[in-house]
Design a protein around this nucleic acid. Structure first.
Lengths: 195, 195
DNA sequence: CTTTAGGCTTAAAGTAGTTTAAGTTATTGT
DNA sequence: ACAATAACTTAAACTACTTTAAGCCTAAAG
């Protein structure tokens, strides 16, 4: 059971690798230990890393003109994270990525990423499935945002990501749901009364 | 310039096909002429078709318990459309798809779709890129829904999809933006005053 | 050609969510 | 151990958006 077992296992969810492919894949990974509350990507920076979360938890968010934060997504162990649009199109990042707790990630540079489609025969398939899942998940989020009230969205969030709830502040959860922290506090008070 | 030129051209945006691959691809397409305001997929039905829009315009939407419509997406010439989650996972459809005007589409069955990954060497890449674009577009929509007011979302919609604006009713546009038709009418009146 | 249903508008009243501001409780850095 | 900063709460005033209901206009169906 090496340090690379989980990330290899993640690939093996969707594709089979030869021993040579495994070795090559491991050779391009950059191991990073990142303390809690560290920003590893900031708006405007080159977004040339795709990261696999080995342990810990991270969050990506953007800021509007007025300085208001919106949490785009979070990632815990066994998830992948980057500013996907900017990574794929080699644009300066439009988002921030920060650790929520001490984390270990394996990063792949855009250069190596592009090569993986040639060096690992199943990688195209692997990444296609990753993108399929990300797309359908994001579409569900859109629909829930359009059709549900904040209270219902909050309970679905708690239900879908119970582990994340403890790692995020209320302000961060509110910014994922698209409401103010004050209103989330309101929703929670209401629920306490019911119990 | 055959009827298949546009759909082949669409594949060739991202991959190169041999003549044999082109012929095979064309052989699995189902040509469909569909009159205006026809429902070609309804909630609960098997969603086993992925459709390329040759001409015309379509819309996908879902209904909540109370009967309220939400427009998930629309598609015009040269776009692809299905209930992606249900198509990929072979679940009964959660959405409706209807034509907004007389349309011609080429459909691919899930069975043929699965085979394409083996019969066309670049298809995995093609579909990966399709999913990448769909994902990053959807993520942008989420952020705009969370951060912008309805008025701003409406003007960005008009700006991004000027051709669609004329094909959708105000009710449908409102349901894409996540507001009531009455409030959209309000926004439009306000703008008329400014001009 | 006429009826009817749907699409669009208007306006008044209601509600979900925001803003501001103040106070309380944790965390963090020195 | 202390001060400073951020997290969470509360409440009152405000605004964005919804609901309801009525009226008008256009297009499709008989």
């Amino acid at each position: 059971m090496s340090i690379h077992t989980p990330i290899l296992h993640n690939l093996q969810k969707h594709i089979t690798l030869t021993k040579a492919e495994e070795d090559h894949f491991i050779s391009i990974l950059t191991y990073k230990e990142i303390p809690k509350k560290t920003t590893l990507l900031a708006e405007g920076q080159a977004c040339n890393q795709l990261s696999y979360v080995h342990s810990g938890a991270l969050r990506s968010y953007c800021l509007d003109e007025s300085g208001k934060e919106s949490t785009i997504m979070f990632a815990m162990a066994d998830w992948w994270l980057t500013d996907m649009y900017c990574f794929l199109n080699e644009k300066p990042s439009m988002t921030f990525i920060e650790t929520l707790e001490d984390s270990v990630v394996f990063s792949i540079s855009k250069l190596h990423f592009d090569q993986l489609f040639h060096t690992i025969s199943g990688f195209e398939r692997f990444f296609r499935i990753l993108m399929q899942n990300a797309y359908t998940r994001e579409q569900l989020r859109t629909i829930e945002n359009l059709t549900l009230k904040a209270e219902e969205r909050y309970y679905r969030f708690l239900n879908k990501y119970p582990q994340m709830a403890g790692k995020l502040t209320q302000k961060q959860i509110a910014s994922y749901l698209g409401i103010t922290p004050e209103f989330l506090s309101n929703i929670r008070k209401k629920q306490l009364g019911k119990q």
